[in-house]
């Protein structure tokens, strides 16, 4: 048991070192912070709103921001391993594929969490200017971490499908985009109004969307249904990653 976590951590550590071995990681973080700032202060009308909350100006953009940033951070996870041939090395070590899948996932997730943590000046600003609901900010951050995890798990899956990072990037953007759209109001409202689609169908499909589940978290509510949603949205693609890796070797 101890070995299980040791191995997972060894793999995660390697992946993290891999991130910071190249300047790409730093460039990524800078772009991440710049975009976050741009969306929050320019498009989110942070100052003009005159309210001490991060929901509308800050977290609101995360599903869209992550749509490109998370696949960019995770696209190399398995495709690079396949391209270099190190997959053969890794999977003939005395470890289970799950340790490798989880280890790699955790490493990328930690990296994204680090980038997210570096947005703390926004929190400082809002609490300097007003008296925000700290609980809502915390759950908002928590939701954002889960959201990144869900996108990342999908990216892990798509990167196991191909040895080409670019293809893996595009595939995961497409899948994540679908997960946004199917529950995004401007899309769902006209669909729900259309006669030829039963409303329950629209609502069922929308319940698969990250949007519906992320929104409530921004308001400071952690519903167990949202939690279960995000955990399965992380678990299922990781499971598929394992299936794909097994298929590759057959």
């Amino acid at each position: 048991m101890r070995d299980t976590w040791q191995h997972t951590w060894t793999i995660a550590k390697r992946e993290l070192v891999g991130y910071f071995a190249s300047p790409v990681a730093y460039v990524f973080i800078v772009i991440y912070l710049l975009l976050n700032g741009f969306f929050t202060f320019m498009l989110g009308y942070f100052f003009e709103r005159g309210e001490a909350s991060l929901a509308a100006p800050f977290f609101f953009w995360h599903p869209w921001l992550y749509l490109f940033l998370v696949p960019a951070a995770g696209m190399r996870l398995w495709s690079e391993e396949r391209r270099l041939g190190t997959l053969e090395l890794l999977l003939t070590m005395p470890i289970t594929p799950w340790q490798a899948i989880i280890g790699k996932f955790i490493a990328s997730w930690l990296f994204l969490i680090l980038a997210l943590a570096l947005t703390f000046p926004v929190v400082l600003t809002v609490s300097y200017l007003g008296d925000p609901d700290m609980g809502a900010i915390l759950t908002g951050y928590f939701g954002s971490v889960l959201l990144a995890g869900a996108y990342l798990a999908i990216t892990s899956m798509t990167s196991a499908m191909t040895r080409n990072q670019v293809i893996s990037f595009i595939l995961s953007v497409v899948v994540c985009f679908f997960l946004i759209l199917c529950g995004w109001e401007p899309v769902t409202r006209p669909l729900a109004n259309a006669d030829w689609i039963p409303e329950w169908l629209v609502r069922t499909v929308a319940s698969f969307s990250v949007m519906t589940h992320f929104v409530s978290m921004q308001r400071g509510v952690i519903d167990s249904r949202d939690l279960i949603y995000f955990l399965s949205a992380i678990g299922f693609p990781l499971f598929c990653t394992g299936v794909i890796l097994r298929g590759l070797r057959a």
Partner: peptide
Amino acid sequence: YLPENAPAYTDM
């Protein structure tokens, strides 16, 4: 095991 073509992580 030494696989064919000796793969290794290039970023290490």
